[in-house]
Design a protein around this nucleic acid. Structure first.
Lengths: 182, 182
DNA sequence: GTCTATAATTTGATAGAC
DNA sequence: GTCTATCAAATTATAGAC
């Protein structure tokens, strides 16, 4: 992977996470990198190819970060908190929502290959969370709870950035872990 | 409000909720209505004006529906469930996420006037939910819980449509109301 | 209210030189 | 790997006839 290719993916991920797939053009990306749009086509023939490469890189990085954070976690709840921390870091480190959160919202307007990868990302999220719930919860409720956690994280990113109150993300995720008063 | 104007808003809301603001063009809307794009400009001079009118109509309808459902609610929890039902109905009746959920994700790429209205919609949501939490919860935790409920609803719509599993929305919102086992 | 006509710009994409 | 040159199509938008 060349340096230009990487800068290209960075700029594209950036733009999409801020404004959406359809708001990002090859020319804007080229301008940002100081190259021509035809050079962008050299790396990715179609926009769809760029999108797919983007989600692939994002997914890999995401789960690598989750695993790294979960390594030092002892309990299941700590693993779960590590997972949420990956989301938090993606937001507070960049002021941008999740790449797949944006693309997931735009699903119907995306090339099928791209929408499929986003779907896979979410399914992998739910599977990972479900696994972390093992000890806490009866099996039949795990899937719903996992989906709830994913939805809350995604929604929290969206609402927090829209309201430009990033602390809101922490408040929301905090409420998610609140223990019922004994 | 003329019939054409209303069909125009319907088509625009439709398209944006499915694919996003930047994926919807005046020409597409015109074609869907069987008119010319210049006629669309007659109703809304700029795309931004159309977007603003759209969010205004959506907000009005949304809170009218919430109030109507909440009318017959006795307890605070019933009021909250009525609120969630408005979201659910928006999704299951159309397979589309919330207009402001989509626009909220795209915030950075939107004209400021539009982004501001979306922000106002979310703030009104949080205020309404906070109010419904009155009896249940100490005042200092209400805001966080209200934001959490909003985020969960928005995230649930997004994830459920992306995964094309609409039942997931019900599962997620169900888990939100789950009582801790006594 | 709707149309024709048109303009200016942007966008996704390709061919071929260097 | 990057460029020039170019294209066809799409997009936002306006002027003015009917």
């Amino acid at each position: 992977m060349s340096a230009t290719n990487e800068r290209l993916l960075d700029a594209a991920e950036n733009g999409i996470r801020l404004s959406g797939y359809h708001a990002v053009s090859f020319r804007d990306l080229a301008d940002e990198l100081g190259i021509k749009s035809s050079s962008v086509h050299y790396y990715y023939r179609q926009k769809e190819d760029l999108g797919v490469a983007l989600v692939d890189r994002y997914s890999k990085r995401f789960f690598a970060d989750v695993e790294k954070r979960a390594e030092t976690a002892g309990t299941d709840e700590e693993r779960l908190r590590a997972f949420c921390q990956t989301y938090r870091n993606a937001l507070t480190g960049s002021d941008r929502i999740c790449l797949c959160g944006m693309l997931g919202a735009e699903t119907c307007g995306l090339p099928k290959a791209l929408a499929d990868r986003v779907e896979a990302f979410f399914n992998a999220n739910i599977a990972w969370i479900s696994d972390a719930l093992n000890a806490d919860m009866p099996a039949d409720k795990r899937a719903a709870r996992a989906a709830q956690i994913l939805a809350t994280l995604q929604g929290a990113m969206m609402v927090a950035t829209s309201l430009k109150k990033h602390r809101l993300f922490d408040d929301i995720v905090g409420a998610l872990f609140e223990k019922p008063k004994s």
